Computed example of a mutant assay.
Amino acid sequence: MPEIDTWMGLSFHLYFFDNQQHKLPHVHVKYGGFELIISIVTAECLEGYLPNKQRKRAEHYIASHRKQLMKMWNLAVIGINPGKIGDVC
């Protein structure tokens, strides 16, 4: 699972071929021993847990990078490494 970015202690990841369980574009966000799966489209929490402060940061990050994350999601679900968030135009 490629790490696509880190920000304020949060680590953002996209799995390859990861469109089966949640059926919609999403990002895995890790912080310490916690992991939360968040929808790219709505920034809604789908599964998992992050402490409130980190969850709000993750939601803000996803809302701010939505267009880039969607491009990266479209690559990852077909098995192409999406690279890092700064690599996407």
Rank of each mutant, 00 (worst) to 15 (best):
I62T: 05
A63V: 08
Y31F: 13
S64F: 10
D18Q: 00
P2N: 03
E44P: 01
C45A: 09
K30R: 14
C45E: 00
V29I: 07
L10K: 05
N52C: 07
P2R: 07
K71C: 01
Y15N: 01
H28D: 14
N19Y: 06
K84Q: 09
I37A: 08
I37M: 09
D18V: 00
Q68H: 15
Y31C: 08
D5R: 10
H13K: 10
E44D: 12
K23N: 11
F12I: 03
K71D: 10
L24E: 15
I80V: 06
L46N: 01
I37N: 03
H22M: 07
E35D: 01
I62M: 09
G79Q: 11
H22I: 05
T42R: 06
V77R: 07
Y49D: 02
L36T: 03
I78S: 07
N81V: 02
L69V: 14
M1D: 13
W73T: 13
E59A: 06
D87L: 07
V77L: 02
V77G: 02
L50S: 05
L24N: 07
K67G: 12
E47P: 05
L24D: 03
Q54N: 15
D18F: 00
D18A: 00
R55M: 14
R57K: 14
H22A: 07
V41H: 13
L69D: 02
L75H: 08
D5S: 13
F17A: 00
K56F: 06
I85A: 14
A63Q: 15
H26L: 12
I40Q: 02
Q21W: 12
L50V: 04
K56P: 04
I40S: 07
V29G: 13
D87Y: 09
N19D: 06
S64I: 08
A43Y: 04
G83W: 07
T6G: 02
M72P: 11
L75Q: 13
G32C: 08
M1L: 13
S39H: 10
E59I: 11
M8K: 04
L69I: 12
K56D: 09
K53P: 02
G33S: 13
C89I: 04
L69Q: 06
V88A: 04
N74Y: 15
D87P: 11
A63E: 13
L14R: 02
M8V: 00
K30S: 09
T6E: 05
I40E: 06
R55H: 15
N74K: 15
L36P: 01
R57F: 13
L50P: 03
L10Q: 11
M1E: 11
C45T: 05
P2T: 01
W7P: 02
I62Y: 12
E3F: 11
Q21S: 12
K53I: 08
F12V: 02
N52R: 15
G33K: 14
H26G: 10
F34T: 08
L24Y: 04
H28R: 14
G48V: 04
E3T: 12
V41N: 11
N52F: 10
H26N: 11
C45R: 02
K23C: 05
N19I: 00
A58F: 05
N74Q: 15
F12T: 01
M70I: 13
K84G: 02
S64Q: 13
V29A: 14
G83H: 09
M1R: 12
V27G: 14
V88G: 04
K23I: 01
H65W: 08
S11T: 03
P51K: 12
M1H: 11
E44L: 01
